[in-house]
Simulated scan of single mutants.
Amino acid sequence: MSANPIPYSQAAELDPRITIPRPVIDPSLAPIVDSFPLPDELDINFLRGIAAGGDDGAFACNADTVLAAKPRLTYTEHSIPGLDGNTIILSVFAPKKPTSAAALPALYHIHGGGMVSGDRFGGVVQAVDLLEGIECVVVSVEYRLAPETRAPGAARDCYAGLVWMSENATILGVDPAEIVVWGVSGGGALAAATCLMARDSRLPTIAIKAQMLLSPMLDDRCASTSDRQFEHGIPWCGVTNRMAWDHVLGAAARGTDAVTPYQAPSRATDLSDLPPTYIDTAECEVFRDPAVAYATNMWRCGSTCELHVWPGAFHLFDGVDNPDVPLIHAAIVAKCTWLRRIMAPKAKVAPLGSVS
């Protein structure tokens, strides 16, 4: 299985499979998006290999690599019971020497990977980067992956971890009223589903402070305009996305009326009484229109949401800050600003640009 030889930044002009108009990739991002072409068809083993750090493990993420990158943090691990008789592992990263005596705000981290790959350490360093200057605890959950576990198994794991975290906040040094649920890509779907579960069950008993959904994978129907525009010629294209959802739900279930909001959050018709939300998405990705629709439905139902659609950007374009690329830096600053605004009332906050 090989990648399409046409560079992503030129796909709209050169790929004969692309027959409808679509936004173009920002020229400043072209060298980045073109540097790592991927096949349209999803290869789970390949994706899991990347998440594990490559063939030689040189880029693996684990507790040691997180602490090496963030030496001011400590690490602890908790094994807790899941809702299905399984065991869930929570990894906790906290300041070594907190300057505040009070319980700290917390970020509940749900990793990306299309719900088919990755682990609880993936993306933690990048999340801590965005929390620069905010004294807080990061709790990351290890959820079961598809297709070995179909939805809503992963969401049930994330929800169980959230409830345990809230009920054991004292052990973790966390203020249960100051928990922000965070998810990226496939983790964004799980974060949204977790917050729907929390609302519907009224557990945790102390309401979640906010949720942050970054390029979230929300809709199994894969039928929006952005799905059609980016069927080919983009990282995590429409072909890839449908294959991932087939693994998550089963090919026979995807797109049917049997799918629930806990499996695919875009299926929810009632988005009232949700915590304040930040959603962002790239203009040139399949997740764009479902993300915009989710924000719109939140507003329709009386919930509040800050929405960003980054023009000319592709999926996860801002995974690493680059001040020399204004579009990337603007997206990073927007996230940092929202986190500081949401977490500042209880957090000790240093000026942006200080060492975390």
Rank of each mutant, 00 (worst) to 15 (best):
P7W: 10
S9H: 12
A11Q: 10
L14Q: 13
P16E: 04
I18Q: 01
I18G: 01
P21L: 04
P23V: 02
D26N: 12
L29E: 08
L29T: 09
I32D: 10
S35T: 14
D40G: 11
I44E: 09
G49Y: 03
A52Y: 10
G53I: 03
D56P: 02
G57Y: 09
F59M: 14
C61V: 06
A63H: 10
D64R: 12
A69H: 07
K70V: 09
P71M: 12
E77C: 08
V92P: 02
V92F: 12
K96R: 15
P98N: 15
S100K: 15
L104V: 05
P105Q: 10
A106Q: 12
G112R: 01
G114Q: 06
M115W: 05
M115E: 07
M115R: 10
R120H: 11
F121D: 11
A127I: 15
L130P: 00
V138W: 06
S140A: 15
S140P: 05
P147M: 03
E148F: 13
D157N: 13
A160H: 07
L162K: 07
W164N: 07
A169T: 03
G173C: 00
A177Q: 10
A177W: 02
I179Y: 01
I179K: 02
V184R: 01
V184I: 09
G187S: 07
G188V: 05
A189S: 14
A193I: 01
C195M: 13
R199A: 08
R199Y: 08
D200I: 14
D200E: 14
T205I: 11
Q211W: 06
M212K: 00
L214G: 05
L214D: 06
C222I: 07
S224D: 03
S226N: 11
D227F: 00
D227L: 02
R228Y: 01
H232Y: 15
I234D: 01
P235M: 02
W236Y: 06
C237S: 12
G238S: 07
V239F: 06
A244R: 03
D246W: 02
H247V: 03
G250Q: 08
G255R: 10
G255C: 12
S266G: 11
R267S: 05
A268H: 00
T269W: 09
L271T: 04
S272W: 05
D273C: 12
P275C: 13
T277C: 15
T277D: 04
A282R: 03
F287V: 04
R288D: 03
V292P: 05
G302W: 12
T304I: 12
E306D: 13
H308R: 13
P311C: 00
P311Y: 00
A313K: 04
F314T: 13
G319E: 06
D321S: 15
D321L: 03
P323N: 05
L327P: 06
A330K: 11
A331P: 11
I332Q: 10
A334R: 13
K335D: 07
R340V: 02
R340P: 01
R341Y: 07
R341S: 09
I342T: 12
A347I: 07
V349E: 10
V349D: 09
A350Q: 14
V355S: 14
